[in-house]
Design a protein around this nucleic acid. Structure first.
Lengths: 191, 191
DNA sequence: CACCTAATGGCACACAGTGTCAAGATGTGC
DNA sequence: GCACATCTTGACACTGTGTGCCATTAGGTG
């Protein structure tokens, strides 16, 4: 069974890789699923067995780091202020980004500049917010109906602002530093 | 020329109205553009001359109040702290919502529960954030690269959190009060 | 009446996404 | 080795969104 799963992963990785390459070269809207599957050597039908939509091929690359951040959030000590916990999760995400700076920058720019991708990405982020808020509430110290939602929302807003500025500077500015500034402006540490 | 424009508006309103009715009854995904134009008495091609996409018919209803809020932001006195200005703009939006509570609630629930609509809505909101940040910077008092972006982002996050909670309570809670709480949690007034 | 502009309808087309079924590969028990 | 269940795949057909193009019609102007 494990061999089958590895085979599946192989096909998925190949599709991701080919898609990223084609789209980076020719643009998102200009690249059809047909072209992707032709280059990957599978049928069009198979593509949609691995990805729910064309947008998902690109957005899933980012999604991975987001879900790792959510998972990390659950491991933070119970007594820690929620704003600090969320901040650590964010730092983890930025760390992931900075592991492949050029690739991350190109991906971020493409998502921010392509309406269809941006919309899908923001929707994913919306779900992260719900999950992050739920994780905070699960080991929560206060009553808080809106509170954890706001903290999670502010955190991802800070990430957004930092990413937009980073992409706008074409990577010349330091992403971690931008995130620091954004978080401090919101007073996230004291929430 | 003004007669022509009024005629155009008439067709657009009819399409909006029919679409809202059909989609409210049968659901968003289950309603096709074909059904909408048939009920409105125009051709399918005409529909796409008035709306860029099927999603836009629904999302534009919300968009109207968002753009009014952006416009209102530009009219705030120059000396006012940005957090306070943004807060007033939000109050204006909530006021618009509360003018038609039942309709607004149904619309909000539908957008939040339908992935395709939610994604489009969040993308619109992303643009509002950019416009709001630009409006604040235009009459800005500080240096602030990230600052206005954060303030605008936090404001819309507060709106989001309030709307989600409002929709979740099925309208039993007071939207204006929820927004107050959300803004206070973020300390928006002192930004 | 002739003329211009703008809106419309109808058609064809590209592309995304889904259901269905037959064929092939893989792993299991006899 | 053989039969069997399972999973993946490819191929086909189909629905639905969105766009380009062109002929027709309505409204306004000289």
């Amino acid at each position: 069974m494990t061999l089958l799963e590895r085979k599946r992963q192989l096909v998925k990785d190949e599709l991701s890789h080919v898609a990223a390459q084609l789209i980076a070269r020719n643009g998102y809207e200009e690249t059809t699923v047909e072209q992707i599957v032709e280059a990957a050597g599978v049928s069009r039908r198979t593509f949609f067995r691995y990805f729910r939509s064309k947008e998902d091929v690109i957005v899933e690359m980012i999604t991975v780091v987001g879900e790792r951040a959510i998972a990390e959030l659950a491991t933070r000590p119970a007594g820690e202020p929620p704003g600090v916990s969320v901040r650590h999760a964010l730092d983890g995400m930025v760390g992931d980004y900075c592991a492949f700076p050029a690739k991350s920058l190109a991906l971020t720019r493409m998502i921010l500049d392509t309406p269809a991708l941006r919309a899908r990405y923001l929707d994913r982020q919306f779900e992260w917010r719900r999950e992050a808020a739920a994780a905070l509430a699960r080991r929560g110290d206060g009553p808080a109906d809106l509170r954890y939602g706001m903290i999670a929302g502010i955190a991802f807003t800070a990430l957004d602002v930092a990413l937009v500025s980073w992409a706008g500077s074409e990577g010349r500015e330091d992403l971690a530093e931008l995130l620091d500034q954004a978080c401090d402006l919101a007073g996230l540490g004291s929430l």
